[in-house]
């Protein structure tokens, strides 16, 4: 251990401000990077999920639409028959 007391450790031989500034800023930047990277991961999954749900809904509407069309085109045929 290079320092006798905790206050000496904080003081860093008079350079405390600069040492803790650089370590603090670096820690903050790295933490921000890690958090943003992890949030980006969940965000990507969420985006894909939203897109899939929208596609599924569209497909449902489309198939219903087709069914309606089919029934509409079928009815006149039945009448003529």
């Amino acid at each position: 251990m290079q320092f006798d007391s905790f206050s000496a450790f904080i003081n860093m031989g008079g350079y405390g401000f600069y040492v803790w500034l650089s370590f603090g800023v670096s820690t903050a930047l790295i933490l921000a990077l890690i958090v943003s990277s992890m949030m980006a991961h969940t965000q990507v999954i969420k985006d894909i999920a939203v897109r899939q749900q929208r596609e599924a809904k569209l497909r449902q509407v489309r198939s219903k639409h087709k069914e309606n069309q089919n029934s509409q085109t079928n009815t006149p045929n039945e009448i003529t028959q």
């Binding site: 860093m12 008079g14 650089s22």
Partner: peptide, 11 residues
């Protein structure tokens, strides 16, 4: 450089 040298380990 005294204790300011400890920034070196980061820089």
């Amino acid at each position: 450089q005294g204790d300011s040298f400890r920034i070196f380990y980061l820089h």
